[in-house]
């Protein structure tokens, strides 16, 4: 079970993207035990998927697609609630206000709030913001998500606005 190339590809991917996959799992699951379960599901899906890897996209794109799709399926299977209680980037912006500006912006707190923000987003917006935070360019984000270039640009613009309002203003206020 599992060809050598499948095992090898998985090893390479796990070594190269292991930390990014942990961050991705953190963005999808708050509870530490469930997050560990999700991460294991992602590793399993990744290993299975490499049996079919055909090089049509880069290994990085492949890894992120598998990871996001597994995380979304895991969430749906656990909650059976789809996108209920989740918001879009468009809905996040108006909620910004004094509370955010008043909070101190230490690095740890900022990271916690950033994680909370990501976890509150609908799956597609979550995929875009995570890809953005992992330093991907617009083309890579489009390749992973399947979003049109215009949609990626719009979402990135919104992400930047949200992050700037939520964190930069908070930091300035605290400073």
């Amino acid at each position: 079970m599992g060809s050598p190339s499948q095992d090898e590809r998985y090893h390479q991917a796990a070594a190269e993207y292991g930390a990014a996959l942990e961050r991705l799992a953190r963005a999808y699951e708050f509870d530490p035990d469930r997050r560990r379960d999700l991460l294991q599901e992602i590793h399993l899906a990744l290993w299975r998927s490499f049996a079919l890897f055909d090089g049509r996209c880069s290994p990085r794109t492949w890894v992120y697609r598998v990871a996001h799709n597994t995380a979304v399926s895991y969430g749906i299977g656990r909650r059976r609630s789809g996108d209920r209680n989740l918001v879009s980037l468009e809905e996040v912006e108006p909620t910004l206000g004094d509370r955010d500006a008043d909070e101190t912006a230490s690095r740890r707190q900022a990271l916690e709030r950033l994680t909370e923000l990501i976890q509150s987003l609908k799956s597609l917006d979550r995929q875009v913001i995570l890809s953005y935070l992992e330093g991907m360019d617009a083309a890579q984000i489009g390749e992973i998500t399947g979003l049109a270039a215009g949609s990626v640009a719009t979402k990135i613009h919104r992400i930047k606005t949200v992050l700037a309002k939520r964190f930069t203003e908070g930091a300035n206020h605290a400073g």
Binding site: A45, R48, S49, A51, L52, F53, W62, R65, V66, H68, N69, T70, V72, S73, S123, L124, Q127, E143, I144, T145, G146, L147
Partner: peptide, 14 residues
């Protein structure tokens, strides 16, 4: 089916 099409683009997968 193999890997449940987990490698599709996320949007297409949904």
């Amino acid at each position: 089916a193999p890997a449940a099409a987990e490698f599709e683009q996320c949007l297409g997968f949904h």
